[in-house]
């Protein structure tokens, strides 16, 4: 019964606030198509959220529906921006790679998805922690070399590694 109630309140949320949310998103994004997509995604996110997650706290849904929707929508907006900048950087990187090394279409999509997953995990890390971690994981550089590149001590690099990995573990699904 609890699920029914939750779905019922979500349906109500949708009919009463979907149009408003789309308008709000369009003002923020300046693009009708993106706004429609994200409004849809916001509700989808709520529908699919696991029990017990903040998205399912229906008391708040009903008391402050619009504040609640914008919290979720804002997060999706940040994700959209991140994803767009990732895709732009990916296209640029692909253009830099000689033709013979460009992966097939299928692989390009797979690589992009993996990049996106990792990028989401790394998103809120401080820049130098992120760089140090990437140099180790992707380039396979040792602590000494990373320390020299980033102009920090080896001990700091070591601390960065643990910090970045712990951050990713905590966020990974």
């Amino acid at each position: 019964m609890r699920n029914l109630t939750a779905e019922h309140s979500l349906a109500r949320l949708y009919t009463e606030h979907h149009r408003w949310l789309q308008g709000w998103l369009q003002r923020k994004l300046g693009h009708a198509g993106d706004a429609a997509d994200l409004a849809q995604d916001t509700f989808l996110r709520l529908l699919c959220a696991p029990e017990g997650s903040p998205e399912k706290q229906s008391a708040w849904q009903l008391r402050e529906p619009r504040a609640y929707l914008t919290v979720v929508a804002r997060r999706l907006m940040v994700n959209l921006h991140r994803r767009r900048s990732l895709e732009a950087a990916y296209l640029e990187a692909l253009a830099q790679v000689p033709q013979a090394f460009v992966p097939s279409t299928e692989q390009r999509v797979l690589v992009l998805e993996t990049l996106n997953e990792l990028d989401a995990l790394l998103d809120t890390l401080p820049a130098s922690v992120r760089s140090a971690f990437l140099l180790a994981q992707i380039e396979g550089l040792g602590y000494t070399e990373i320390a020299a590149r980033l102009k920090v001590s080896e001990r700091t690099v070591k601390r960065y590694m643990v910090q970045a990995m712990a951050h990713c573990i905590a966020l990974a699904p």
């Binding site: 090394f101 690589v111 993996t114 997953e117 990028d119 992707i138 990713c168």
Partner: peptide
């Protein structure tokens, strides 16, 4: 998860992954 994260990095072509993931460096 730690192993999986490292594994994901290992599966990526480095010349693409580094400029993309580290695109916000100064």
């Amino acid at each position: 998860k730690a192993e999986r994260i490292s594994g994901s990095f290992a599966g990526l072509p480095g010349e693409l992954a580094l400029p993309v993931l580290d695109r916000n460096r100064n």
